[in-house]
Amino acid sequence: MYALITGASKGIGKEIAIELAKQKYNLLLVARSEGLLREVAIELQEKYGVNVNYLAADLATVDVARQVFDWVAKNQYEVSVLVNNAGYGSVGNFDTYSIEQNRDMMNLNMATLTEMCHVFLPMLKRQPKAYIMNIASSTAYQALPKMAVYAATKIYVLNFSRALKHELKDTSVSVTCISPGATDTGFNDRAAVPAKARKAAEKVAMTPEVVAKISVKAMFDKKTEVIPGTLNKLGAFLAWLAPKSITENVAAGIYQ
């Protein structure tokens, strides 16, 4: 059996791959950088003695989920774990980014994730036990000025995952949504997060290794929704409890 992980060349995705390799899952890794994928594949094969195959693909493109599935079917891999980790965000006012940039983000964060679940669900259903892990974000618990599109995509991921879990309750497939807070990855650099927000995040930032351990355990425990880290859980609760105008003003101030 194989675990398929998107966005697996670095950060949380790579660490999730490591956690699954430790449990002797063979791995299928998908990301944009073929060079990084090759390095990770060699590393995990040598260290954990599992089979690791990879596909370099731009997961923001239309119908890429079908491309990934065709690769899996052609090689007769049987997938019992699907991890939808690929995603990114951008900081700034909504209208400072082009329609194409916002569309690419929405395609990757929502459409590709949804379509990956759709194309792989028949395969997952025929396994005795199967798991879907969707990576959202702690931003899924509030509107986020300066990251309006990103936060909205993660709200979608959270609610889609919860609904899908309910629909699949009488099948062999379990769905878990993970909503990490600040994590020491390359996210801040790609998103162009300002120094003030980075400094605030340092107080609660978790390592990808810790987030991955929590995430994989939650998936196998069949948890529906998990926010790694006590402070992140508290932050999500306070965002739910406080008036929205207050949480939005605070968030906007951080990302100035």
Rank of each mutant, 00 (worst) to 15 (best):
L113H: 10
A111M: 15
G49C: 03
I99C: 06
S90F: 13
T61A: 13
E46V: 09
S98A: 08
E78C: 09
N85Y: 06
V52E: 01
L44S: 00
N107L: 10
A73M: 14
A65L: 07
N85S: 07
Y77S: 08
V68S: 02
S98F: 02
F69W: 08
D63P: 04
N75E: 15
G49R: 05
Y54L: 08
V52Q: 03
E78Y: 08
E46H: 10
D104W: 08
V79N: 08
F69E: 06
T112C: 12
S80G: 13
D104I: 06
V81A: 05
N102K: 11
T96W: 09
T61M: 10
V52D: 00
N93I: 11
Y88S: 04
V68K: 05
V83N: 05
E46M: 12
I99L: 12
R66Q: 13
A60W: 01
V62Y: 14
S90I: 11
A65R: 03
Y97Q: 11
A56C: 04
A86T: 03
D95F: 13
N53G: 07
R66M: 10
R103F: 12
W71L: 06
N107F: 09
N107K: 08
K74T: 14
R103N: 13
A73Q: 15
A57H: 01
N93L: 14
D63M: 07
L108N: 09
V72N: 07
E43G: 03
F94D: 01
S80Y: 01
N102D: 13
V91Y: 08
Q67H: 10
N109E: 05
E43Y: 07
N102I: 12
V81Y: 04
E78N: 10
N107Y: 09
N85D: 02
A56K: 01
R103A: 13
G92F: 04
Y48R: 05
L55F: 04
T114L: 15
R66N: 12
E46I: 04
E115A: 14
N85I: 07
A57L: 12
S98D: 03
D104C: 06
L108H: 06
D58W: 03
A65I: 01
V72L: 02
V79Y: 00
W71I: 06
L59W: 02
N93F: 07
Q101Y: 01
S90T: 12
M106F: 15
E100L: 11
Y88W: 13
N109M: 08
E78A: 11
D95C: 09
A65C: 09
Q45N: 00
N107A: 14
E115N: 15
L82E: 02
D70E: 15
R103T: 14
Y97R: 11
G89N: 09
V52W: 00
G92Q: 05
A65Y: 01
T114D: 03
V62I: 14
V64F: 00
Y97N: 07
N53E: 15
T112D: 02
A111D: 13
L55P: 00
N85M: 06
V52R: 03
N107D: 12
M106E: 08
L113A: 10
M105Y: 08
